[in-house]
Design a protein around this nucleic acid. Structure first.
Lengths: 234, 234
DNA sequence: CGCAGAATTGAGCGGACTCAAACATGGTGG
DNA sequence: CCACCATGTTTGAGTCCGCTCAATTCTGCG
């Protein structure tokens, strides 16, 4: 059992060094020698849409870098309803608070089929002692998270429901504007924009009629970023 | 001129070691030897209410720790209107992005008479090389900022205007519940809650009539946290 | 096929926005 | 000293957007 863990660790290290998106994530500028400090296993995990990565107040022993897919971070309101406070995409990191506190601050659930790397906190701590570069990377990730949060506040929580939805669609389509965006349930859309699921549904319908969206496949929307931009600004 | 700067530096260092709120801020667990690495001057600044600490896209050469007062961080929407994305209080830090990028990401304006310490980025970088403890502190500050941002999203951007205002007042009064809260302009209140200034004004009036607020002095409100909590939940 | 969950659409209501006017406050200059 | 203006606050009236409740329709799946 112990042996298999060590195997996993080594597989993890090897994977990191050959990782296709390494430039995006935490270990971007680690040196060869730094990798020697990785003892705990780094696992690659796959989750289906709807699966939970971790729960609110779960013991936090690892952070997660997203390799592919989309992850939502959810908080609960006093009345029990929930609000999506962040979306994490390829290159993003979830659960950074694990480095500072014993439990997670959100519930993390896959919105689309998800691939993540699970990095134990102990690994980060060990590397941190030796690598200021990792330190900088970590700060960058904190900064990214904060910028995203600010964007949610200014872009997705103000203005009319139509404006907010348009901005969200622009956000979701900005990476690959030509490809259709796979959107999630109307409830999740509403929970991001702080509107009801009915309003989310109506707004999507309206966009389709106006030609700002075209349904390439069920729930896969081609975005007319021109029109969406106009709506977002209006 | 150069001499006076060096003087300022030393005054800064001395002040840090004797600082009354040092346990709250970045240099909490620096060792004596670490202070030797502080060469650039650390200034203590005082701003009146309404004064600007820094502007959006200003060159960012320093971060600021708040000693007293209240600071707002503002972002602008496409249409020119502005949204307050964070409030920084005693012990909080503003402008952390200076460590990672050349310009500030917000406009920072004092909401109340403000005292801050201005810490040059170079100082942080110099200390960082030698102190993992500072590193940890920095992460804590990033984390604080992010937690605040999440709180704004879940608490202050959802629900009815009445609920949001109640939650904001609870937030502002939580440190010293017995003392009156000095609140700011209705426009700023609205810009925090994403409502119009008229709605903010009406809500405050309603709270006064309902006995949830009592005006001790002009614009100094005593909060009935019981009643506010009930309103926030309802 | 039939069912559960999601999405859509409708009707009606209410809260927040808009536009507007009256009022308070503090600073300026004659 | 007071008239005057700028700025912020309060309050009103009317409109509209988004919420609520509800009825269908759609979709995948056992």
């Amino acid at each position: 059992m112990k042996q298999s863990q060590i195997d996993a660790a080594w597989r993890g290290i090897a994977a990191c060094q050959r990782c296709g998106i390494r430039h995006l994530v935490l270990f971007a500028d680690l040196r060869e020698e730094d990798f020697d400090h990785i003892h705990a296993p780094i696992e690659e995990m796959r989750l289906e849409a709807g699966a939970q990565l971790y729960g609110l107040d779960d013991p936090a022993a690892a952070i997660f870098t997203v390799r592919d897919g989309l992850l939502k971070l959810v908080q609960f309101q006093p009345d029990g309803s929930q609000r999506i406070v962040r979306l994490v995409r390829m290159g993003g990191v979830a659960g950074l608070e694990a480095l500072l506190q014993p439990t997670y601050a959100h519930m993390a659930i896959a919105l689309q089929p998800l691939e993540v790397c699970r990095i134990p906190v102990a690994t980060i701590h060990r590397l941190q002692a030796n690598s200021t570069r990792l330190h900088t990377r970590l700060m960058e990730k904190w900064h990214e998270a904060l910028t995203t949060a600010d964007g949610f506040l200014t872009g997705l929580s103000t203005g009319s429901a139509r404006q907010r939805m348009a901005r969200l669609l622009l956000l979701l389509s900005e990476e690959r504007p030509e490809e259709p965006v796979r959107l999630f349930t109307r409830e999740d859309l509403g929970s991001i924009l702080a509107v009801t699921l009915e309003t989310a549904s109506r707004t999507i319908s309206e966009f389709k009629k106006a030609g700002a969206l075209r349904e390439a496949a069920p729930n896969r929307m081609l975005c007319d970023r021109e029109k969406l931009t106009r709506i977002a600004a209006a």
